[in-house]
């Protein structure tokens, strides 16, 4: 049942709510699943020196990023009793308020998906070479730093 084949993680632009909804619907046939958990990263309109961020432009060292996503996936399946796991990350421009990261895990039981989701999101933030250029309303920019 494990859904382990390598898929493309990157999506050009924002991740739509339709895409997320369809993704959930696709799992209705997998009836050994008892719990899903979803993380959605949303672009925040932070204000820096009086200017609000209007979008983030994402770039990535894609070869290494895909290898790291694969490693994270493998270690998550090893650590947790997961039936399915999906990761999607945006590349290119994502406007404030739109979704740039979608992580979706499914398991027979709830405790597993709470722990697995946190592990996966933290691993992505720490290990995947993705870079966010924060664009302000006046088109100036700064480079995003993860805390």
């Amino acid at each position: 049942m494990s859904d382990k084949k390598i898929k493309s993680v990157f999506i050009q632009g924002a991740i739509s709510s339709e895409f997320i909804g369809k993704s959930i619907a696709k799992h209705q046939t997998k009836t050994s699943i008892g719990a899903h958990n979803i993380f959605l990263g949303q672009v925040r309109a932070d204000v820096v020196d009086g200017k609000a961020i209007k979008a983030i432009e994402y770039s990535a060292y894609e070869d290494m990023a895909n290898a790291k996503f694969y490693e994270i996936r493998e270690s998550a399946f090893e650590k947790f009793e997961l039936i399915c796991m999906h990761i999607y990350h945006s590349l290119g421009t994502v406007n404030a308020g739109d979704i740039c990261l979608f992580v979706f895990v499914s398991s027979p039981h709830r405790k597993t998906v709470f722990d697995a989701l946190e592990f996966i999101v933290e691993e992505i933030k720490a290990k995947v070479p993705v870079f966010g250029k924060e664009i302000f309303e006046d088109n100036s920019h700064q480079w995003k730093v993860n805390n």
Partner: peptide, 9 residues
Amino acid sequence: VLLPPFSGG
């Protein structure tokens, strides 16, 4: 490859 601090998500 030279990589600045990662800032995905």
